[in-house]
């Protein structure tokens, strides 16, 4: 299984998928193959944090993971595909903004790190986000936005969480390339991210 992990970590797509076919044909434990994929993804994440890999590798790794899962799924008989969740997360691009790429990459990285991710989509109404926080009681709420017009809706979400008495129960993370210390303070969130791994590191640091 080390070969699967290494092929994933080294971005050797063809080799990875060939090995997967071979192992599945040989009757090897599909759960063990999937675990090896996940170990490879963990290594990809580490290399990204170390500055050896970039967004391009995260996207390709996500696609390799999807292609692999499609092959493995039919062999998983009834057994659970993934381990127990490390916690629940909600992500959404706020009202007025339709950009999704950064949010979805961040979501994938959290999912692959063992979190249960509820992706509410783009241009999501403030009331809808607050409602979902109330119902799902997530550990973390990730609000995404690429444009400056996202600042006010982000602030409105945090204000309404306060009004609903929910603010103490959830950490709020802001994501987007126009987000910085000024906006963190303006919105009243807990942390911000301009890259794809800060969210995972932050989640792992929470009790």
């Amino acid at each position: 299984m080390e070969k699967i992990t290494a092929a994933m970590a080294d971005m050797l797509e063809d080799e990875l998928l060939d090995l997967t076919d071979k192992y599945l044909a040989e009757g090897k434990d599909p759960k063990a193959i999937l675990d090896a994929y996940q170990a490879g993804m963990t290594e990809v994440g580490k290399r990204y944090e170390a500055g050896e890999y970039f967004v391009s590798e995260l996207i390709l790794a996500g696609e390799m993971m999807n292609s692999g899962s499609e092959k493995i799924k039919p062999f998983l008989k009834g057994g659970s595909e993934s381990g127990p969740s490390k916690g629940r997360v909600i992500i959404a691009t706020v009202e007025g903004d339709i950009h999704d790429i950064g949010k979805n990459i961040a979501g994938t990285m959290m999912e692959l790190s063992g979190y249960e991710v509820h992706n509410l989509g783009e241009d999501v109404k403030i009331s809808k986000i607050v409602e979902e926080v109330k119902t799902l009681k997530p550990k973390l709420l990730g609000l995404s936005g690429l444009l400056t017009l996202a600042y006010d809706p982000m602030k409105a979400v945090v204000d309404q969480l306060k009004e609903a008495g929910l603010r103490d129960q959830v950490k709020v993370l802001l994501g987007g390339s126009q987000i910085d210390e000024h906006i963190l303070k303006y919105v009243g969130a807990d942390v911000f991210a301009n890259d794809a791994m800060t969210n995972v590191t932050y989640l792992n640091s929470l009790p």
């Binding site: 797509e13 391009s56 996207i59 790429i101």
Partner: peptide
């Protein structure tokens, strides 16, 4: 952007 970034390797 996704297609272009994966094409760097593919």
């Amino acid at each position: 952007i996704k297609g272009m970034l994966v094409d760097l390797r593919r």
